[in-house]
């Protein structure tokens, strides 16, 4: 019975979830001189969400310049995406957080919607 409850809990819980890992990404030199990169993984099991926005912030939550393939990532339900965040060498010392935030389409008409944001801290 306990196992059943646990499985049920896991199944229901992961029916609608947002994951962004690792918790503490490391910046390593990329294939471009003077540019560092962090490798992040985004996992979406929120059926009503198709897009996540990526951002980089300093310790005071001011935006830091960065580059990535798409700042607005289109991701399907139950899809896992590997995302590279590129930061120039001069901005590396300022970059503290890499965040992903769910973007809700205007077509979603639930009465109370949850926007989820997960921020990883750069080592």
């Amino acid at each position: 019975m306990k196992v059943f409850v646990l499985v049920l809990g896991l199944l229901s819980g992961y029916a609608s979830a947002h994951q962004f890992t690792p918790t503490y990404p490391e910046l390593s030199p990329s294939h471009m001189t003077g540019v560092y990169k962090a490798e992040m993984i985004l996992f979406n099991t929120r059926k009503e969400i198709e897009y996540y926005a990526l951002n980089v912030f300093d310790k005071d939550w001011a935006p830091v310049r960065f580059a990535t393939e798409n700042r607005l990532v289109k991701i399907d339900y139950e899809e896992r995406k590997y995302v590279n965040i590129y930061i120039s060498k001069k901005d590396v010392k300022d970059a503290s957080y890499i965040c992903s935030k769910s973007k809700i389409l205007s077509s979603v008409k639930d009465t109370s919607i949850v926007a989820s944001r997960i921020c990883s801290k750069i080592k």
Partner: peptide
């Protein structure tokens, strides 16, 4: 098993 935070919308609200 790695360190992570998972946010789940367990119950949708209704006014």
């Amino acid at each position: 098993v790695e360190s992570k935070c998972v946010i789940m919308t367990d119950t949708d609200g209704l006014y």
